[in-house]
Simulated scan of single mutants.
Amino acid sequence: MITPGSTPRGEPSPGDPGDGAAPGRGRAGDPEVTGGPETTGGPAAWLSGDLDLEHPPRLSGRRIAAAFASLLLVLALLGWGLPLVTGAGWAQIGRRFAEMPIWSVPLMVVLGAVALALESATVRTAFRGSRYRDAVQGHAASQAVGMAVPGGSMIGTVLLGYLMRRSGLCMQAIITGVIAASLVDMALTSAGIPLLGLVAYALTPLVGPEAPDLPGGLWAALAAVAGGLVTLGLAALLMRRSVLASVVAQISQVLPVADPEAILRQRDALVALLRTRAAGLIGPTVLARAVQWLALLVAIRTLGIEVPLLVTLAIFALGRVLALVPLTPGGTGIAETVGAAALVALGTAGDAAATAMLLLAVATFVVPCLAGGVAAAMAMTRAPARRR
């Protein structure tokens, strides 16, 4: 498996003689030596004709209708499902909210903003040559679309690319950044965090008489880890230059490929980024997930719930796994309902469990959505930057 900071044995490093780069281009991945899509034969030439980043993505009427339907589903899950699994009515939940310290919601807003800022640092690193302000605006807007629109992840990605293009970034830097940031998120969300949850679940007997019964959590985490590892393994295999070259050659016999060598140069730029900026890509996202776990811990403690730290890690991992369920955008409503059910299974009062998960949603859902709307509006009203 290719790991950041290493090059597969027998494979030339990006930019070394024999790596397929054109003479005089410099090392792959350096934004100074590559142009935008207008540069004939550039590393992004194979994709620039099919990817429109010069105009913002548009939401069709069907997408808008699906977004409203998804919102209704989220409200149904929270309005009906949450009281059902916790056995607490909304009157009880409302009283719990009123009894919380006045600083509870503002603290959740701060933690949600910190997590968003840390994730934006990863985006800033992935999109070489970008400014942090542009990374914050692009990531926030993209995340908000992914959470608000069913199947909005792809639309959010295109929106991120459009905003980065609008900020003046070249196509190669955008494509490389999207792939790099996606790989980091996949590694952590689909494999790292579920694996951490499994370890925490296995160790919980050390802090209590027996492991807590988290409904479906064990199998969900196992499935997520298995799927994540398989996907990462295939991605690592495909990033080997020899393997990718063979795949491109096979595809070229069936489908027309404008510039097969440009695909390999794009791969070289991606591997160069992963090798040289691994800490900047992984570190901020890991810290962002730690802040979100801290938000869960604060929400639990604010409601007076006594749960061992290892158990909170398992519940947090379960919530992140369920966020992958495509029933609602970002798993909103599902994660809160199942998280509350897990707390009730651990002996927590139903109204406290429901209120804790709703308080957590302020940091994980409300803040990203509101920040994304503001960021998109600010980015659209700012004049486009000169293309670099």
Rank of each mutant, 00 (worst) to 15 (best):
S246F: 07
G339R: 01
V207N: 09
T302G: 10
L232S: 04
A278D: 00
W219L: 03
Y201M: 08
V243T: 15
G330T: 11
T337P: 09
L327H: 07
D213E: 14
F316K: 00
L309I: 13
L281Y: 03
L297S: 15
V325A: 01
G227C: 08
Q266V: 08
G208E: 14
V247L: 04
P205M: 10
V311K: 02
G330Q: 10
L303I: 13
S252K: 04
A272F: 04
V344L: 08
L273P: 06
W293H: 09
L218G: 08
A200T: 03
A341E: 03
L297G: 12
T337Y: 00
A299T: 13
A202I: 07
A345L: 04
R240A: 04
A290G: 14
E336N: 10
G217N: 04
I300K: 05
L297E: 13
A223N: 10
L303D: 00
R320M: 00
L270W: 09
A221K: 05
R267P: 06
Y201H: 14
L274A: 11
S242E: 15
T302Q: 09
V311N: 10
I305G: 11
A236K: 01
T285D: 07
W293D: 00
I263G: 13
T332P: 09
S242T: 14
G228D: 05
